[in-house]
Design a protein around this nucleic acid. Structure first.
Lengths: 581, 581
DNA sequence: GAAGGAGGTCACTAGGTCAT
DNA sequence: ATGACCTAGTGACCTCCTTC
């Protein structure tokens, strides 16, 4: 649907201006009372319509003389952009467009609004509702944030300005598209019917249409001049017009366009809503609680009551995890290691059988292990991973076996990560699928943080979980490469931040929920959780680190991409090991 | 001076128009922050490109009838000057040239602008920035002084007009030159080499190719290539900024083209450096200069004094990059593409031979491309990447060829990233090796940020640089997978942050210097640079985003790990494409 | 003639203004 | 702060003239 529609839509909102109808409608709509001032002042459509008209009609080639009296006429009043009797409407609010401004057909109001917004880089006050206000002529001044958002959404941009006269080709194209739209409309059940229908079906015809128009243009075929349509449109996206109907009033959307557009619109809005809907700020931190009740409290609260507790919990979740100790002590058992997906699910208390197995293929992503570069041509295999008991591997063992043994070695660690995750307030509220996805993507990173202390850059050693220590040089000679170095460097910098236990726990939680989100189904929830944890972490750090708190917090966040890189490098090495054991 | 230059320079910027190239996504270009919508709107080029075409091809004698309908056609629209499939671009702004005006291939806009400027001897208002604004199609109207300067710089002059038809001889010469350029490019050592080379030799690669014979007429034959290098720089001493115009288009510059840049480069760099180091004040900050004075100063100071300046500069570095325009315009030329490592080095002005080649193997890391999952079992190959002209690939072509062609398609983008990097204050102070490493690791991420606007989650479309838009569903049906989704999501969230142009530039710089550090030799310097940039970004954001500044800044930092993930996913797809084309 | 460019024309728009 | 109205440009097209 949407697709088609879009295609269909030319580009702008149009309206029949023919009869006096318009005026009526408008007046109705117009929120403003009737201004006494003369016709000119009349804000409403009619008056304006009467003003100078820019006719894009084909035949209108150049009747410069006729309609417009030259420049002077301009002074007369704002012009109405009209094509073949159809008035173009503002893509932002549906008012009558005065031209093509910032890449979009827009009215004087929205043009001016957008101009001011960008010129002064104004940050509007947050929307009081859901940040998805519908923007129409009558209410466009109610929410600046949403209005500006809409401007951007429909494509207004300083880079999209177009000067000079409209290229004939474009004009032609517009016309054709509009005509098509019209025909469709009319042919259907007759104009009235369609109008009616449209009206009802879509509350915001204009938007609907408009939004897509821009996009679609290129696409399809239907656009008459296929060839033209394509590129040109792209290039001039907004150009096409959106067939809308009449005045602000009746907008009739393009043939199908409206429908589609609606779709798109709505989706957009939804997205917005969701995102913002969550109250990231709501998560306050414990300690400050007492000491500073005055600290900024969460802006909007959803269940504020338990927030503190949650936060505390999260800050301690790791510590409370019995596993923690184990981690450092190398609790490496022989527990079997199999498909991670399943493993995670089981540990999370889910039924693995209910999940798709595609995930299994990615399990290498989660391992905390690495081997020397495959460049290691010796016949001996090495597994230079601190999770291993030793970097040396029995050369006589089949590589498959080595691999399995190795994999098993970190099962306990993975289990601990899962336990930790389960203690993160809010984590279990995510869908099972998403919990597993985050764990799969983030386990390595979590382990990296927790085991950072195994890497000692100052002494240039790495302590394996077996308790044995090896120098970096030794490990390098066994084939360890860049990754090992990077891990050491990471550890050193992390240590330099001197995080407290709580901070470390909270940071670890952040690491987990910040894991690669690809595949996450409920992105908004994951993000909301992340926001909450970040907020808590921020408060904690701010509270603990004095002058350097801002820097510390920033540096902490900068650890995330580093972890991601380590994770990837690690995965690559694992992969290469599997490929060339 | 000018004279010589002109002579030397052939003349114009060219671009292949065969594909959708021409159209290029203007949107992309947008300097403005990543607005969500834009993609669609890009109107122009394409359409124009589609307009009347003046073919200079030899054989093309004059199919007047065909392409242009003679005079009448003229009425049709402005013509596009095309030679053998290559479209000539305006030497001033990179738009499609309509002819040879005032001694230079120029578009109607710049022609008219220049005409008015000289006719009325207009004294334009002083540039509000550094008087070195990059002139591109999208922003050519923002600074008259710089535009006029650029006109003069590229050689426009009333004395250079050429009347009447193009002498056959000249036409022939142009053709030959272009062909040579083409061949060189392709054959030589690969694109990179040429890029590199180009970099050094001619600031205005495009021209080289172009014919411009006009001026040259005078000069000698050799002019073509040799000349290139020379003069340009001279003529435009200040030009650092306009090193190439071509780019913007895609120009593919002549082989020698790149060379040009070099000259420019150095000069360019100097410019930048000088600015920072020397006249801090000289660098004025756009809007908030004054107001920002009160911003918090960097915590620990290393040259605190110049921070702001640096910040400003860096915040504008992207904008000043001529390439930006190119980006949007999709300048996909035929520049060869080979070993990236070498390419980077070349562009950076280093000697590729001195570097280890191991890097080359990783070059896939840098591409901004992705294809559908290999699960795509159909015989047809798809390259669902917005840098491509189309997701469809000729099934008859050998995959190797497809791959190479595809690789070439983003060479211009890579080049732009390099140019951008060079403008980041402090970046060039890193060792050559580290500069290359960061570029290799971060190019994809930088491109992802700059091209974010191509992905429109609201409308569920992706605009290719060719200007064509495709719905996510369509792309998905072609094999695109999770990555595409993730990219869209990333784009949406980024757009939601509503960064200003400066913020976006600064953020982009941060992205680059925050790239995977593995392999970096002087970690501390890289980190110091990162700190500096982050600090600047933080100040800027804090200053611009009011209540939400902290949140915005945090969210911005959280984009880094996301970018890293996208980068990795992308690399994986690339790899899988190479393994299973 | 016909190709091809200078200039002119005037459809159009970014921005500035200022009453509201 | 908004938006109707203006001003100063801008650039798509055209006409006319030069050169091949």
């Amino acid at each position: 649907m949407p697709e088609d529609n879009r295609t269909a839509k030319p580009g702008g909102v149009i309206a029949y201006i023919s009869s006096g109808l318009a005026s009526t409608a408008e007046s109705c709509v117009s929120s403003r009372p009737m201004l006494t001032s003369p016709p000119a002042s009349r804000p409403s459509l009619p008056s304006r319509a009467v003003g100078m008209v820019v006719d894009i009609a084909p035949s209108a080639k150049r009747g410069s003389g006729a309609e417009k009296t030259g420049r002077s006429s301009a002074s007369a009043k704002s012009s109405v952009t009209k094509i073949n009797g159809m008035v173009l409407l503002c893509k932002v609010c549906g008012d009558v467009a005065s031209g093509f401004h910032y890449g979009v057909h827009a009215c004087e109001g929205c043009k001016g609004f957008f101009r001011r917004s960008i010129q002064q880089n104004i940050q509007y006050k947050k929307c009081l509702k859901m940040e998805n206000c519908t923007i129409m002529r009558i209410n466009r001044n109610r929410c600046q944030q949403c209005r500006f958002k809409k401007c951007l959404a429909v494509g207004m941009s300083k880079d999209a300005v177009r000067f000079g006269r409209i290229p004939k080709r474009e004009k032609q194209r517009m016309l054709l598209e509009m005509q098509n739209a019209m025909n469709n409309m009319i042919s259907k059940n007759g104009p009235l019917h369609s109008m009616l229908h449209d009206d009802q079906s879509s509350p915001l015809p204009i938007e609907a249409i408009s939004s897509d128009a821009s996009s679609s243009s290129s696409s399809s075929s239907s656009s008459s001049s296929s060839s033209t349509s394509d590129s040109p449109s792209c290039s001039y996206p907004s150009s096409p017009q959106y067939p809308q109907d009449s005045e602000s009033v009746v907008s009739m959307d393009t043939n199908s366009s409206s429908a589609s557009s609606c779709g798109s619109d709505s989706s957009e809005d939804e997205g917005v809503i969701m995102n913002n809907g969550q109250h990231p700020d709501a998560f306050t931190f414990p300690q400050q609680r007492s000491s500073s009740e005055g600290l900024a409290s969460p802006p909007s609260g959803t269940g504020c009551g338990s927030r503190m507790e949650e936060q505390q919990e999260s800050s301690n979740c790791w510590n409370r995890n019995p596993a923690v100790g184990g981690y450092q002590r190398c609790p490496y058992s022989n527990s079997a290691y199999s498909k991670e997906g399943a493993a995670y699910q089981q540990q999370l208390g889910c039924d693995p059988s209910t999940h798709d197995h595609s995930q299994e293929e990615h399990y290498t992503q989660n391992a905390f292990s690495y081997n020397g570069p495959n460049s290691c041509t010796k016949s001996r295999a090495y597994l230079v991973c601190p999770m291993n008991t030793s970097p040396y591997v029995d050369p006589n063992k089949p590589s498959q076996e080595i691999w399995e043994e190795f994999s098993m070695s970190f099962t306990p660690a993975v289990r601990e990560v899962v336990e930790f995750a389960k203690r993160i307030p809010g984590f279990r509220d995510l869908s099972e699928h998403d919990q597993v996805s985050l764990l799969k993507a983030g386990t390595f990173e979590v382990l990296m943080v927790r085991f950072a202390s195994l890497f000692n850059m100052a002494e240039r050693t790495v302590t394996f979980l077996s308790g044995k220590r090896y120098s970096l040089d030794t490990l390098r000679s066994l084939g360890a490469g860049e990754l090992l170095n990077s891990m050491c460097e990471f550890s050193e910098k992390l240590a330099a931040l001197r995080l407290s236990e709580e901070e470390m726990s909270l940071f670890t939680a952040v690491v987990l929920v910040s894991a690669n989100r690809s595949g996450i189904r409920d992105l908004n929830s994951a993000e909301a959780l992340q926001d909450k944890l970040i907020w808590a972490l921020r408060n904690l750090v701010m509270h603990n680190h004095g002058d350097e708190s801002a820097t510390t917090f920033t540096k902490l966040l900068l650890k995330l991409p580093e972890l991601r890189s380590l994770n990837n490098m690690h995965s690559e090495e694992l992969l290469s090991f599997k490929v060339h054991p």
